[in-house]
Amino acid sequence: MVDHVLDRPLAEAKPVPATLGRWVQLRQAMAAYALCTPAVVLMIALLVGPILAVMALSLTDYQLGAKSLAFIGLENYVEMFGERVFWISLTNTMIYVALVVPGSVLLGLGVALLIEAGDSGKTFYRAVFFLPVMATLIAMAIVWEFMLHPQFGLVNLLLKLVGMTPQNWLTDGDLALYVLATIGIWQAVGFNMVLFLAGIVSIPRFLYDAAEMDGVPSAWERFRLVTWPMLGPVTLFVVVITSIRSFQVFDTVHVLTKGGPNKATEVLLYTMYAEGFEFFRSGYAAAITVVFLAFVLLLTVVKTQLIDKKVHYQ
């Protein structure tokens, strides 16, 4: 069929008598579908397929390596919603996101503004703040582990030096999650800064000239009149990306706390990992994954449906 369509180049398609019109239209439609097919097939196989597979898996009692599986309906979900660990995990993830997103977005914006306002050393500052993004988080997590060590960690040594009480940063249930969030912010600031820098550079200079002529009284008013609104699309993108990435927090938890102490740093992806790859309960882990995907999807929908219209000024 494809051959048949292709053997008649488009240029030949001349105006046809009305009776032939329908036939030509049909052929064009068929050609269009034929041309879409490879892309659609790949998309289903690589993007939609795995998600559907996970959804299907979450409705079974499959165990990793098992020879058989049975359909058990929503039992995994019922179990999940009844389990304390899941709710702790979900709450922790939420707290983590609620800290890391505003923290890294505001700091990223602040750093970008400061770098752009300065005259010299722009490249240097950019590179320095971008370092944590380029370094593998697993490796950096080990560095953090050294720094936060209760006895000989740099942080506690410094605290002692200025006469403050050292802390058990990673083993204190009240502190551990906030320490992880701090590391999360530290890691995300550089990435957000780069995005904000790109946004700031693309704001037309003449808008600042206009603001100056219109009499903005202070740098803050100038920021509110020009910079902040013009950064709207970038900010939205940064917030969504940072939210999704913080939802995915895993590496630091795995290296530094293993979800402990006493589930204080248990987060969604870590719970999923433990269930799926330590207890081999693949069906149950799939159910957690579906919940995770639902959140990510929700964020994306909020972005496209609600906010996109407000930050692109057309």
């Binding site: 037309p204 003449f206 808008l207 000239d209 206009a210 009149l225 020009v226 609104p229 013009m230 709207g232 000024y313």
Partner: peptide
């Protein structure tokens, strides 16, 4: 008045 008008797009 600027060549590019310099209106605030938002």
């Amino acid at each position: 008045v600027f060549q590019s008008y310099a209106l605030y797009p938002h």
